[in-house]
Nucleic acid binder design. Structure first.
Lengths: 140, 140
DNA sequence: CGAGAATGTAACATTAACGATTACATTAAA
DNA sequence: TTTAATGTAATCGTTAATGTTACATTCTCG
């Protein structure tokens, strides 16, 4: 969803967009969007202004924003959360496996982010546009 | 958690282990374990026998089981599920972005699995053992 | 062959996370 | 000063995951 929102912002190229219009684009509630925008603002991906005629816009050009940044801004980094369940102290494996797995998972998440880094927001917008044209042509 | 269970199985090298003892190792309920074991059995990673003195064991040596296989067996492949929310038809971006993002995420997930493939169950067990020794030494 | 021990599985309760909704104080531009 | 927008809190519903209980089934051993 975060990507969707940013894609709309990229589409509007610099014009400030309100959370209400973003919400209607994603078919959800403005408050949900605002919470999302807060995360994005914390990550300095967008810029928000308050007041009449206000809204949000990107701080950089879409070519310079990659999906890994968006992922980091939004996700809670708990794709692989070890369960809060403390393992049985009597188990010779349980006690020591946690840290080992954490390392492995961190590496896996890094690999994923590396891959996401290859795609920019501009790429997404452009490909979406192409897909759209294809669909229109097919429908006509 | 799945990895934890399999690590215990690897530790016991071939001896059948009951879901009850696995459950007490992970500090959870036998039924949870049994549900997990079903997934693992479907993926042909383990072999379960019923009846007295029964239990589960690995079908292959731990050197020949990598974490990507375990991930595939257990995870629902919805790490990035696009929200069921249908986008607003009026939004020029929303209509066409879905498929584009799905492709990107699939690629990212593949990257992650590639990374997981580098670690075998045997690696995990061995590293956990080392971590354990270190902890013991530090405590003594 | 029968008893006991284990799995397979269904039904249901509990919990946590997320989205949705409502409400309201705050801010800033016109 | 008015008004449109954000920031934020409180609450509710839904869904998924876990936990729990229960029971039929299956297998092995005596």
């Amino acid at each position: 969803m975060a990507v969707h929102v940013l894609a709309v912002l990229a589409y509007k190229e610099g014009d400030p967009v309100t959370s209400s219009s973003l919400a209607s684009s994603v078919n959800t509630n403005p408050v949900i969007i605002r919470r999302l925008l807060l995360s994005l603002k914390r990550a300095r991906l967008i810029d928000t202004r308050k007041g009449v005629g206000a809204g949000s816009r990107l701080t950089r050009s879409p070519q310079r924003i990659n999906l890994a940044e968006i992922y980091r801004a939004v996700e809670s980094h708990e794709t692989f959360k070890s369960p809060a369940n403390k393992p049985n102290a009597g188990c010779p494996v349980g006690n020591c496996i946690r840290k080992t797995l954490d390392k492995v998972f961190e590496s896996a998440e890094n690999a994923m982010e590396q891959d996401l880094r290859k795609t920019t927001l501009a790429d997404v917008v452009q490909k979406a546009r192409e897909a759209c044209l294809g669909a229109t042509k097919r429908a006509s």
